[in-house]
Amino acid sequence: MPDPAAVFEEHRPFLRSLAYRMLGTLSDAEDVVQDAWLRWSAADTSVESPKAFLAKIVTRLCLDHRKSARVRRETYVGEWLPEPMPDDLWSAGGEATEDVGYAVLHAMERLSPLERAAFLLHDVFGESFAQVADFLEKPEATCRQLASRARSHLKDEAPRFKVGAEEGSRLSRAFLNAARNGDLAGLKKLLQPGAVLFSDGGPVRAARRRIFGHDKIARMFESLTRRKALPDEAREVVFNGLPGFAYFSAGKATDVLLFGIEEGAIRSVYVVRNPEKLARLVA
């Protein structure tokens, strides 16, 4: 009989990947996976498909977690953004047949927990609707409807074109240099006219509302530079498949900026300042 611990470790990257996409933060995902391990170690593990058994446990735990998190999200100050995930972890697990980018992950916050689960399990991780029905303990027809509603809500969020690493890096570096120099015209040139900035500060100060338009976004960064409100140390990053950079102060990350890019310009800027979501990043 296979060692239960070895079996669990084999599937841990997939389970973490599933939980992160369900919950939006690595810390919550790892808590759920640890809870799943406790349940797995106490259960009869002589099952036909350990992966399916574990995926169901994680799915049910995530659904319970999202119910309890709903009240906290309703009182959250400002925009709530997913925790940026380094690309080596983002791609770990190798189970996703079709992945979701940061914009879609953000938009999934508007879905109900069951819609989110049905969409991820079927459309992203390739589970059959029969299997999804078992995981969610709902009729198969209901699961099809849940996934369909989720697709409808998310249809405008996925980028139309994949951005190459070289272009993403070029635009990130150009934005950082323009921001450092307070180059208002340069910043505006890098942004699409209809660009949108989303900012998540949690307990620290950040823009509480979305900022629309390349002029307002550029002026915000020019003002921050003029007031010397941005740390000097910055590092180029790629999180959740998006290019960007992180600011550091005293060895700790203070801000992560990620860029959604379309047609050679920045369409969306995601600014994560919440210290709890940046605790893993060190200079």
Rank of each mutant, 00 (worst) to 15 (best):
G201P: 03
K189V: 03
R209Y: 13
L197I: 04
I217R: 06
L190V: 00
L184S: 09
A218R: 07
F198I: 04
R209A: 13
L190K: 02
Q192D: 13
D183K: 05
G186S: 13
L191E: 09
V204A: 05
L197H: 09
I217W: 11
D200W: 04
F212K: 14
G186H: 07
D183S: 09
A185W: 03
G202R: 03
A206M: 02
L184P: 00
G182S: 12
S199I: 02
R210F: 01
G202D: 09
R208P: 01
M220G: 13
L184H: 01
G186E: 09
G194I: 01
V196I: 15
R210T: 14
Q192M: 15
N181C: 00
G194T: 01
K189M: 08
G182A: 08
D183T: 02
A207D: 13
G201I: 03
A185F: 06
F221K: 00
V196T: 15
V196L: 13
A206F: 02
D183I: 02
A185N: 03
D200N: 12
M220N: 12
F221T: 00
G213A: 07
R209P: 00
R208D: 13
G202M: 10
P193A: 08
D183E: 07
K188G: 13
R208W: 06
H214L: 02
F212G: 07
K216Y: 10
F221Q: 01
N181L: 06
A218V: 04
K216Q: 14
F212I: 13
A207T: 05
R208Y: 11
G194F: 00
N181F: 00
R205N: 14
K188S: 11
I211R: 13
I217Y: 09
A206V: 02
L187E: 09
L191K: 11
H214D: 15
V196C: 10
D215M: 03
G213N: 08
R219K: 14
R205Q: 14
L191C: 07
K188F: 01
Q192E: 15
P203A: 10
P193T: 08
S199D: 03
K189Q: 12
R210L: 14
L184V: 03
L190T: 02
G201K: 03
L184Q: 09
A206K: 01
L191T: 08
L191N: 09
R208K: 14
K189Y: 07
A207H: 13
P203G: 04
G202E: 11
A206N: 03
R210C: 11
P193K: 06
V204F: 10
I211Q: 12
F221R: 01
K216E: 14
K188L: 00
G182W: 06
N181V: 00
M220T: 11
A206E: 04
R219G: 06
V196G: 12
A206H: 01
L187G: 08
A207F: 01
L197G: 07
G194M: 01
L190S: 05
L184G: 00
R208E: 15
K188M: 15
R210Y: 04
P193W: 07
G201F: 05
R210P: 07
P203C: 02
L184T: 09
H214Y: 10
F198M: 08
A206L: 04
V196K: 14
F198T: 07
P203R: 09
Q192A: 14
N181Y: 00
A206C: 05
G202T: 08
G202K: 03
S199R: 02
F221N: 02
A207S: 10
F198E: 06
A185E: 15
P203S: 12
D215P: 02
D215F: 07
R210W: 04
L191Q: 06
K216R: 15
